[in-house]
């Protein structure tokens, strides 16, 4: 069996294919900076992109120019911690949600205040169907599932919100609180502590920033 895998350099025979690909691909080049979301495109506005350096941006050119030639695929380098400058993330759902979704979130809030958790999660699930990537909605769902003692689900939904929030610390703070509480309730003390550390970290950053 001859299994080999070449890390990078295309063998001679690959060149035509690679060239053909490159012709097709040259059109795909996009600037890295402005990446506005098309979500939720149905409400006629876009989510403001984080103004701070985004995760996709290249490190400053030149930083690596002093290096001697490195292997083509360098081993993972410890990445410097991202700068602690807080980008202008939306602080509340108002900034990224349509009126319909805000209205459902409001309904959910009052239902939750009245202890009607089914009504609250029902309203939020309707909102989720309208704006499936609205991380404020997912975050609020996590809180209601926590109220309903659906701990496992509460944690997962909060994680889902974190994943969609793409670094929005305001939402992540709430989510980690839910995660800590859900883990605590399930008897996962260590997990709860880890989540609490995240909460503390974010709170510290927010206080410092």
């Amino acid at each position: 069996m001859r299994i080999g895998y070449k890390a990078c350099f295309p063998a001679r025979s690959a060149l035509p294919a690679a060239l053909a690909a490159s012709l097709l691909l040259s059109a795909c080049v996009t600037p890295t900076a402005q990446r506005t979301s098309s979500w939720p495109d149905n409400i006629g506005r876009t989510i403001p992109a984080p103004t701070a350096p985004g995760p996709g941006q290249n490190p400053t050119p030149g930083a690596s120019t002093a290096h001697t030639p490195t292997p083509l695929y360098s081993p993972p380098v410890a990445v410097a911690p991202p700068p602690k400058v807080l980008p202008a993330y939306p602080k509340s759902a108002d900034e990224i949600s349509s009126q319909a979704v805000l209205s459902l979130m409001k309904q959910a809030r009052s239902a939750r205040a009245a202890g009607q958790y089914d009504q609250a999660s029902g309203a939020l699930e309707r909102a989720q169907r309208i704006e499936p990537r609205n991380y404020f909605v997912w975050s609020a769902l996590g809180r209601v599932y926590l109220d309903k003692k659906l701990y496992d689900n509460a944690e997962s939904v909060a994680m889902k919100s974190n994943s969609l929030a793409r670094g929005n610390v305001y939402v992540e703070l709430e989510n980690w609180k839910v995660i800590a509480a859900a883990r605590q309730a399930q008897g996962d003390a260590i997990g709860a502590l880890q989540a609490q550390v995240k909460v503390d970290e974010i709170q510290r950053d927010l206080a410092g920033g």
């Binding site: 999660s121 699930e125 997962s156 994680m159």
Partner: peptide, 12 residues
């Protein structure tokens, strides 16, 4: 009268 709800379930 509500009997059953099927909440959204997710798991990474």
């Amino acid at each position: 009268e509500p009997l059953n709800r099927y909440p959204i379930r997710v798991k990474q």
